[in-house]
Every structure is written in structure tokens, then in C-alpha cells.
Design a protein around this nucleic acid. Structure first.
Lengths: 216, 216
DNA sequence: TAGTGTGAATTCATTCACAGCT
DNA sequence: AGCTGTGAATGAATTCACACTA
């Protein structure tokens, strides 16, 4: 029911996530109010865009003295987060997988990496960055037991397609894919590929672009 | 001179990078021609969009039998790549930094990570994933000697701002930033932040969105 | 005075739809 | 028949600009 709570664009969701992190930061520093132009800076955007984004959240912030940091954090959370903490699994405990585990350690977020998986038996049974590592064969069972519905895929590119299939069979709803390849999955699992090569190529391209503009 | 070689959007650049990787893949498999609808699949787009993107490249591909894989690779390269291989440095040899080094090892691309830097003396002087690790103090010198103008920043978030400043002083033109924070740099260095927390939050959000649509 | 909220205008990206080629 | 190339139409995201508020 409660149909169409309004469709929010991917770009807005990205920015909301970034606003929220910044808001938590300044909250920790004791700030209780914030202006749209301050938030604009952290996403390299404009104040008007921030205000639009916040409108979508069903905002509140009121005039002349900006937005209240605390309620903004809560309202963004209401939109972005699930009601309970989302359990996430990491699949592929290589260099990158371990780095991802490390990266997400020790912060309290509304998601939690609760298990890791690898096909190498040497890695299984151990605790890596605070998470137990299971064998791929146990994936389905552990997923069900822990109600895991999101996976981070950090296996070598040759295996990505096959492992993604396993994940889909285990009932995963979303995959954050670090393998530089397009994953073809049959049903409506949400796949988001984070393509580091592309990001670096893009960075290099636009650094030259900058240069060209200067030379005018 | 040769002003305005046409401004190409960020989105198009992203897709071109992805097309190219796929093209190289199928080239290795012996395919010599490709259709726009095949390329569309790897970016989850439409055939029309692919054709537009390729038009921007000053395309060529001709009718009825699609595009020639080899010349497409060359033409995308002419647009995306610098004339010489771009030397890149990795800054911050922690878990993530090492993972990045590993990730970019052994592929021949038009960029090359040629050096790593860390402030921990224990890591300096060693070879890590095939790259020599230098102390941060030597950064400026090594950057100049190796004509490095792009850096990958993989230091802890508390240090990111400070290290970014050092990089700018060393004359870097672009930074791919893995630290979850907005970097404020004075001049026109191109900064691209790859925000893993945001990407994961987005993934989780849209997985629920998907679900809602189904329930519709 | 210095901010917010928001219609209207604008800019940018995508898709449609169809002529033209092979 | 089945593709490409591309103007024109559409749709989405951003910015403008201004009334409004504390």
C-alpha cells in the first residue's frame, strides 16, 4: 500500500548519503545547525540543489537559520535505511575483499558485514577483520540463517559471473560488484558495479580536460 | 588551438571506458565486428544511446554489419588516452592501497602505477605488488622524476586532507580519492572521490526499491 | 539581512522514429 | 532484412529568481 512514496533519483540518493556522513561529522563536532550552502560544498553542488534534495526527503529545515543537523540525520535515515540493520556478506576474501572488510570495520552504520566467503579452504573457518570466513559451499545456509540479502562481490573477474549466479540462487536482492565485468542475472536482483578501472580512466581523462580549458 | 573538440559528458566517458574493455575482451575471443545492441547490454543501456556515444567519438561504424571492433578500440583510445602512458602514483599503502595495487597489476592499460608512498618507514624501500614504496618525504622528487600527474589517494580519512595538500603542492593534476571525505583544494586539480560507503548505501536502498516495485 | 521553499526556465541526457546503406 | 546515423521529441536534473520567513 502507501503507493509511490515519490520516486527519488539515483543522483539524489548519492548526495543524501554524502550529506548524512557530513552531518554526522559536524554533529560530533557540536554543530547543531547547517546551511544549504555548507552542504553544497561537500558534494560540489549548489545550495539550490541541496534544498531540492532535502525537499524530497520531506524536509523541514526552516528559514534564516538553516537546517537542524539532528533532525536532518534522522530524516535522511528514515529514507535511506531499512528498519533493521541490513546484513551484508562479502564474497571473495582476496586483497580487495580484505580491504573492503577493513574499510567497513568499526563504524556504526545501518548495515553490517556479518560474514565472508571464499572458495579457498585455507581461508575458511578463520576470522578475518572480525568476520568469520565460510566456504562458498555454505553460502546458502549462512545467508538464510543470517537473513543476508546484500552481497559485496570481490572475486576475480573470471569467477564473477558464476559466483553471482550462486548469490542469486541463494536469494540475494542486491550485489555491489567490484569485478570489472557486466553481470547478467536472470531476475530482478539489483546489481551495482563499482568499476575502479573506469573511475581511474575517467579521472585521468578529466584531468587533461581541465588542462585544455586552461590553455583555452 | 583546435578549440572545443566538442564537450563530452561524464556519463559518456564512463560508458566509453566500459565499451572499450568489453571490446578488448571480445577482440581477444576473435570477434571483429560488434552491434550497438551488444554494447548496450554491457552498460545496461539502449542501442540508440550507444550509437550516440560512438558518434561523439567521431565514429565510423557502418551499416548493416555493425562496428569494427579494432577501429573502435583505437578511436576510443584516441579520445580517452593521453599520447604517452600516464604515470600514476598510489599514496597510502594500507590494506586498501595494496588491494588497489593488486587490482591494477598485470594488465596493460594506458596508465601505469609506477610508485607507491607511505609515511610509515617500515613500508618504505620495499617493493609492494611490483612497485617501489617511497616515503612521503620523497614525494615531490619522485613525482618530478617520473612525471607523475595523477595520484590515487588511499590514506585514512583523518589524513586525507593533509596528504591531498601535499599532492597539490607536488603538482599533481588529478586525484582519485578513496577517503570518505570531501577534499578542498585551492586550485584547479581534478578530484574524483570514489565513496564506497555511499555506493553500498545506494545499493541497499535500490534493492529495497526494487522490492517495492514488485509489491506495487 | 540572510537564509529557505519552490514554480518556471534552462540545460543536459536519453529515447523515438525514420531515412539511408549494404 | 537488419543494421547505422541523426534530427526531433521527450524526459530528467539543475539552476534561476523571487516571494516569504525569522
Amino acid at each position: 500500500m502507501l503507493k509511490m512514496k515519490k520516486k527519488i533519483s539515483e543522483r539524489t540518493i548519492e548526495r543524501l548519503s554524502i550529506y548524512r556522513r557530513y552531518l554526522k561529522e559536524i554533529q560530533a563536532q557540536g554543530k547543531s545547525r547547517v546551511y544549504s550552502h555548507e552542504l553544497a560544498k561537500v558534494v560540489s553542488g549548489t545550495a539550490a540543489q541541496v534544498r531540492r534534495d532535502l525537499m524530497e526527503v520531506g524536509c523541514n529545515g526552516c528559514s534564516s537559520k538553516g537546517y537542524e543537523v539532528e533532525s536532518l540525520i534522522i530524516e535522511i535515515g528514515d529514507l535511506l535505511d531499512c528498519s533493521e540493520v541490513e546484513n551484508v556478506a562479502l564474497v571473495g576474501v582476496g586483497n580487495l575483499g580484505r580491504a573492503v572488510l577493513g574499510f567497513f570495520s568499526g563504524k556504526k552504520e545501518n548495515f553490517d558485514i556479518v560474514a565472508a566467503f571464499d572458495s579457498n579452504p585455507d581461508k575458511c573457518g578463520r576470522i578475518i577483520c572480525g568476520r568469520r570466513c565460510y566456504h562458498m559451499d555454505d553460502l546458502q545456509e549462512v545467508f538464510q540463517k543470517n537473513r543476508i540479502s546484500t552481497a559485496i562481490l570481490a572475486v576475480p573477474v573470471e569467477e564473477a559471473e558464476k559466483v553471482a549466479k550462486t548469490l542469486v540462487e541463494a536469494g540475494v536482492r542486491a550485489i555491489l560488484n567490484f569485478a570489472p565485468t557486466h553481470l547478467t542475472v536472470n531476475n530482478d536482483v539489483f546489481i551495482h558495479t563499482l568499476d575502479m578501472t573506469m573511475e581511474l580512466e575517467k579521472t585521468i581523462f578529466f584531468s587533461r580536460q581541465n588542462l585544455n580549458l586552461k590553455e583555452g
